[in-house]
Structures are given as C-alpha cells and as structure tokens.
Simulated scan of single mutants.
Amino acid sequence: MPLVDGVERLGVLAVRTAWLDGVRMRRSRVPAHLFAMLITSKRAYSDWLAARTRTATMRLPAEMLRAFLPPRTIGSSRCVSTAVLEPAYGIAGDAFDHSVVKNILHTMILDAMGDDLTAGLTTSVAMAAARNARRSGADLADVVGSVDQALAQWLPDSFCTGVLCRLDAETGALRWVNCGHLHRC
C-alpha cells in the first residue's frame, strides 16, 4: 500500500494476504495512512528516521542545506510540484523551494558558486530572503531584489544563480525570472 502525505509519496507498506478483495484493500489502507502520519510527524525532528533513510555519510554543507528544504512533493487539487537534488549527499549550494498558496504555485531553483559550506550558506540566505519576501506578498521582481540585498549585506563575496517562477494554476499563466545566468541566443 502506498504511504502518502497529501501528494507526497513517502514509501510503500507491504501487506501480505491470502486473497485480495475490496474489504481487505480498505483495511490495508488504514495502517498505511497511520504509518504515513507517523513518518510525517516524526521526520522533522527525529534523528532515528533520518539515520535509517541514509545510505552514506552526509557532508556538513548538504546536512545544513537539507534542513531548509521543503518536502520534495507538494500540491493542491490543481497542481503538483516535485523536486529532487542529485547527487543527494554531495549538494552544497544547490537547492529548490516550492509553495502553493491558494491556486498559485511558487517555485525556485538556486545554485550558489562553490561546493563548500559557504555555498550552502549563500543558498540558505538566498532562500530565506526569497521566502520572506514571497510571504510578505512581494512580486517576483521584489523577491529577486530582496535576495540581492540580503546577499550583498551578509555574503558580499558570494554569488548565487536562480530561476524563480509563479504559476497561476487556474489560468495557466506562468511568470518567471532568470537570475545570474548568462543570456544565450
């Protein structure tokens, strides 16, 4: 049975039965829902769950940045957004953010220069500044301005590229800003 939190797939629960009918399917869904709620409620602060899902030692920059990432999958009745970072244990300045407010999907992909703790700090500051501006109702241009201002104030020698998007899931209108990438024809 799938373990699901909203639209995020958490895993699969194996259920063994001699035969499968509608009643057994419904009964199997109950423990799957309970396990999904348990995982979701504990993973934010449980080192035990984090340790059980890892297959390698995570470097400090990746550990720090992963603490700030939203769930990999979010959504509403109108849209779903999924993001994954690879290589999972080698990230330093790479990050994503996404949020759904009413029928507006906000997404962001960031990449700070370098592969060290400074890159992780740069991305973390950029993500926090963007979230702060977005949550205050800023439009895309003002979100970008907030990120620029925060990086100039706190990490003036660092550089971060990004793509920020807003999708109106009702109308299909997409607005996006490309930051720090060279224009190519």
Rank of each mutant, 00 (worst) to 15 (best):
V4G: 01
D5F: 04
D5H: 12
E8P: 03
R9I: 09
L10H: 10
L10E: 10
V12I: 11
V15I: 13
A18E: 08
L20A: 05
G22R: 08
R29M: 10
A36C: 08
A36H: 02
M37Y: 13
M37P: 03
L38Q: 14
I39N: 08
T40W: 14
T40P: 06
R43M: 11
S46W: 02
D47N: 13
L49Q: 00
A50S: 07
A51R: 06
A51D: 12
R54E: 10
R54K: 13
T57P: 09
M58L: 14
P61G: 07
P61V: 11
A62V: 00
M64S: 07
R66A: 15
P70V: 15
P71D: 08
P71W: 03
R72F: 14
R72Y: 09
G75K: 10
S76M: 13
S77H: 10
T82D: 13
A83Q: 11
V84R: 00
V84P: 01
P87T: 12
P87K: 00
I91F: 07
G93P: 01
D94K: 03
D94G: 05
A95N: 12
F96I: 12
D97S: 09
H98L: 12
S99W: 07
M108G: 14
M108W: 04
I109R: 04
L110Q: 04
L110E: 02
M113K: 13
M113P: 01
M113D: 08
D115H: 14
D115L: 09
L117Y: 10
A119E: 01
S124T: 15
V125L: 00
V125A: 00
A126D: 02
A129E: 10
R131L: 08
N132C: 11
N132T: 15
R134Y: 07
G137R: 06
G137E: 08
D139I: 09
A141M: 02
G145Q: 06
S146E: 12
V147G: 10
D148L: 09
A150N: 02
L151N: 07
W154Q: 15
D157G: 00
D157S: 07
C160S: 05
V163H: 10
C165E: 13
C165M: 14
R166D: 11
L167H: 02
L167V: 05
A169K: 01
G172S: 02
W176Q: 07
G180V: 07
R184K: 12
C185P: 05
